[in-house]
Design a protein around this nucleic acid. Structure first.
Lengths: 355, 355
DNA sequence: TTGTAGGCGTTATCAA
DNA sequence: TTGATAACGCCTACAA
């Protein structure tokens, strides 16, 4: 870098310039009592004129604080995550914290690396979205002496400090909604049950069926990847059954988009021939065709609450935990009462020349 | 936090434990010469056993280094950005740097705040994606004494240190491709020209038309927002013209998705009645229906090159700058040779366009 | 090959 | 109301 511009002013310089001691400068800068208003304002103006900014390292060295948080996410290229992150960053920043961001790609080994790197950087607290370390957190916390808060863990964990979505409830509500529309044959495109959300959304789905005395048909349930391809393949499989369901509750909006494609492949019109409900309510849910009915997650609240919890714990308080946020149903165009395929061919809802 | 786990070991403790001075410990830890292999290994094992991690603040205080980078992005909820960020983070981390992430929402005031916060945190360098401060960077760099590197600035800038995409070239290639398919009436759904990408993609579009002796029809160009709604509204306007184009080159994939919806609204089949080309090649480009032909941007390279440039400048080197990365066309299902449907709606066909 | 001493910029504890 | 002075943890001359 160009030399010359780099030199920073210190309290020592301010002290010299203002004709006082560094102690007095420190007092003025930190709004401490026992200082004459006149000297204080003089010092402040000198500081401003010198463009002084305190050195966080020097400060941290004595105060043992870094005002830094670590944030580990599975990937940033996930719209659900991408909505949570800014909420965290904003609240952290509003409290004087800066946040280190890192990706763990749902790999426990990588996650541990990331967390260790955070610890080495003396972060004051760690936030993990879609955590995969399960049992490890209480011990890590204890060992490192810093609080760890989990947002929607991917794996079940004994850790108390968790902010998550009520997946069971959301899945139940989504399924109940389909039942209420009149569907009796409802399938589920899910993800493996070793993941917490996968298991719980499946559970919610089953509970809703049970609550309405509908029998659970395992052939209407396919567990695959939590992306478009997963939804596509799962739906292909289910829709080629001799007795396919008339509605599908999908793990998330991505899988729902895959289902939409599969339906199109098979010449099924959504929602007329097939109703589809997603989960998450990511931004593009209202851009696909048809727009997606889905369970809305308040990602902003998720981020805020988690950060809040972390900051409270850093402050030494004991926040209420765990926190579970509710979802709510967003009805768009991918759901409707069931009809038979033949009837569907009579009504032309949308011009659809293909197939 | 639970007390007890918090205490960190220091070189002083290691020194005591190993029966040497702190200097010797420092030497051992930093691979300095002039130390007996035996003492070194003894010290190292003590350090390991104590779970020692150097205090970056103490270290930074003397070395004047933080090994921290600042990364300001417009928003993280943009798939294009979300692809660049991990590339930056990975390379930074591989070089021992941690990165602070912050959002500026394309607001110059907020961006300045963010950059100032970075400066106050003593970051060693700053990366800005979609920067909006235009003229300010050289002065900020000079004043703060730290390098700033821009990734695809939103606003034209005299700043040298820029890594960007060849927008003109990409737009030209996209348009040329449509021409080559046989289209003679090609429109553009763009964004305002006070943005650099907006202006350059429009320029590229016009250059391609000119190069093929096609006249530029201003009514076939609508500038709006760079999102789905922008594309939707722009396409509605253009497609309701008495003589609409048979192909549209869109500012990005989002606007292209909007165009797809508008086409559907009007009962137009893509690509049969209307060809659509996007820009960016974000992941969902191959999930929409029809899948989107688009100009691929190498977001990974964008992030890597920018980080590389920044690290080199931090190291005192003078990297080649600016860097411009090429795009390449991805042909999917949203483009085809023109057919007669829209042409039929044209009342007067100028002979020139028929050729 | 090792150790001593000084300082990085700041805050905290005392005494003046 | 102020100012020495001693930390905080680490590094780097310089001395031994």
């Amino acid at each position: 870098m160009v030399p010359g511009g780099a030199r920073r002013s210190t309290i020592k310089q301010i002290a010299r310039e203002a004709g006082v001691s560094v102690t007095t400068v420190s007092r003025a800068l930190n709004d401490k009592p026992d200082i004459h208003p006149a000297t204080k304002s003089r010092i402040l103006s000198v500081a401003a004129q010198l463009g002084y900014t305190p050195n966080p390292m020097a400060r941290g060295l004595v105060s043992q604080r870094t005002f830094t948080l670590g944030l580990a996410v599975r990937t940033i290229s996930d719209m659900w995550v991408a909505q949570i992150v800014p909420a965290i960053e904003e609240l952290a920043r509003a409290n004087g914290y800066e946040v280190f961001l890192s990706t763990h790609y749902a790999d426990p080994e990588q996650e541990l690396h990331v967390l260790e790197a955070f610890h080495q950087r003396y972060v004051e607290g760690i936030l993990v979205i879609s955590s995969t370390l399960g049992d490890a957190y209480p011990a890590l916390q204890e060992r490192w002496g810093i609080p760890i808060v989990l947002v929607s863990p991917l794996i079940a964990t004994p850790h108390r400090y968790v902010v998550r979505t009520d997946d069971v409830g959301g899945a139940k509500a989504a399924t109940a909604y389909l039942i209420q529309l009149g569907h009796r044959r409802i399938g589920h495109i899910g993800v493996p049950t070793w993941t917490l959300p996968g298991r719980e959304r499946l559970d919610g789905y089953r509970q809703a069926l049970e609550a309405h005395s509908l029998t659970y048909n395992p052939r209407w349930v396919v567990l695959g990847d939590a992306d478009v391809t997963g939804g596509l393949e799962g739906a292909r499989q289910i829709l080629s059954l001799p007795d396919p369901p008339t509605a599908l509750f999908c793990f998330n909006d991505l899988t729902a988009v895959g289902v939409l494609r599969a339906a199109r492949e098979q010449g099924l019109r959504v929602p007329h021939d097939l109703s589809v409900v997603g989960f998450d309510d990511v931004p593009f849910a209202c851009y696909v065709d048809p727009t997606l009915s889905t369970m809305h997650q308040d990602t902003r609240a998720l981020g805020h609450q988690a950060t809040q919890m972390l900051l409270e714990r850093i402050a030494g308080d004991e926040p209420e935990a765990p926190v579970e946020l509710q979802t709510h149903l967003i009805v768009r165009d991918s759901t409707a009462p069931p009809s038979t395929r033949l009837a569907a061919r009579v009504h032309v809802v949308r011009p659809k020349e293909e197939s």
